Amino acid sequence: MPSPGDPSGLPPFAPVRAADVRAALGLTLDQVAAAVTAYRGEPTHPSVVHAWEAGLTAPDDTQVRALAAALWCSPVDLVAEATTLGQCRTVAGLSPGETATALGLTQARWESAERRNRWQGNPAQTSALLRTLRPPPACFVAACGTTGRLRILLREAVTGWWPNYTSPISRIVPFAPSVVGPVLERLHLAYQQLEGAAGASSPRAAAAAEARAADFLERVDLHLWEEVRAAIAHPYDGSP
């Protein structure tokens, strides 16, 4: 069983998702606790389920699976986005051997990539990775070791002439220029509006606008992923 924090375990538990699923089913904490107890064969008090939903404590992988069974959903419905290649494999329900075969790798090479969370496959293998594991874009970029480079290019794009950065950024993120271009334009416009507010307001308002602009640049890659999610439902299907 993967231990907490194991990069090949499930992604982190998402309390709000669990609470929303239970509310949608109309179940009480007592009912969920009883179902978790039956699944695990170990007593689980309703206060424990409440603590999970409130984010006071986090269930381990076995408890997440028990909670998912109690809520009639997949464990994937109760966790956040995957942040490592190993978590992507676990979410996909594949073994290391199955993953290696699907990607055209030896199992030893895949296990090394998973252990180091570093991806260095060729274009064909990378396409297979995206189709098979469907890693969240931020996870994929991190595994390729290009997060820092992406942030630099994004900052230059939103503060300068964004069209010049469409191709360079498209070579880092797993999206075509037709997706990246419009997203960069929106980010550029959003930042320019913050800059405009900083220059045309009262001193106090200008300082606040400057702080928002600085925060925007600091979190520009997160804004990129938000825009991508809004633009395309399934990133690796190649369709909006």
Rank of each mutant, 00 (worst) to 15 (best):
A233G: 12
I172E: 05
S112W: 08
P203K: 10
N117G: 12
E156L: 14
W225F: 11
D237R: 12
V220D: 02
A198Q: 04
R171S: 11
Y165K: 00
N164K: 12
A206C: 11
W52Y: 13
E114Q: 13
G93D: 01
G9R: 05
F216V: 13
S95R: 07
A124T: 14
A213I: 02
T147C: 09
G97L: 09
V16S: 07
P203R: 09
L189N: 06
T99K: 00
L187G: 00
D215Y: 04
A209Y: 01
E98A: 15
G5L: 03
F140W: 05
R204F: 12
L153I: 06
C73L: 05
W52V: 12
L187R: 06
Y165Q: 04
E210D: 12
P15L: 07
N117Y: 02
G160D: 04
T44I: 15
G145I: 12
P46L: 09
A124L: 13
A35G: 10
A80S: 13
S74Y: 05
T99W: 02
R131I: 08
S127F: 03
R116P: 00
A113D: 06
L194Q: 00
V48P: 06
D237N: 11
G9N: 02
V91R: 06
D77S: 13
F175E: 09
T126E: 05
Q87E: 08
I172D: 00
L105G: 06
V91K: 03
V220F: 04
